[in-house]
Amino acid sequence: MMAAFGSDLIPLRRLWDEAHCLRVHEAREVEAVLVNFEEHYPQLYFSVYIGELPPTLTAIELSFLLLNRGLFWAEHHPRLNEHAIALVLDPVARTAALMVGYALEEILPPRVLQRILRNVRTPLWHAEYAPAITSVVNEVARTVRKVARGALRRDVLPPAAIEEFLGGSGASRQMLDPDMEDGGDSSHSRLLP
């Protein structure tokens, strides 16, 4: 099967709504849930694909392909494909598939994955994709938390970037360091060492 699809890497996003089943605010909510999941589980990566699959490809096959050919973007922490989770929804075939990498097989065996998917059959049947995806993500997080070790963010992750830190106050790096506009050295700033 891997040979049939070649060996090219597929750049993955957190949410791929090719079937346009989600409204804008729903897509933003799902994106926020996935970002929150990645922040609390820096090793894991959750990818959701919603689209109509060709007759020759099933949802479970696509999830297998995504996990083996996917290229995940790691921002702060190295994320391996072995720690990835793929959820594929086919609104035409009305099929859902959930698959995990090698590292999560012991934590999320097929029996648990089947239970998680079974619990979201009703919202999926009502085409409520956003609540269904949120429920799957939360249930996966709850299951993984049982075997994970808790640690403070500052002990595991590097400190946030200055732009991100100042983003909430509306200030920018240039406002605090006017020498940057002139191409000067930012080390002369009194506010920013």
Partner: peptide
């Protein structure tokens, strides 16, 4: 944040998949 235990990379591949062995539902 929640950190998972270390993963043993020496597991054999299944179905030719280097990262995923079709463990899903």
């Amino acid at each position: 944040v929640w950190i998972l235990p270390d993963y043993d990379h020496r597991q054999p591949m299944r179905f030719g998949g280097p990262h995923c062995g079709a463990c899903g539902a």
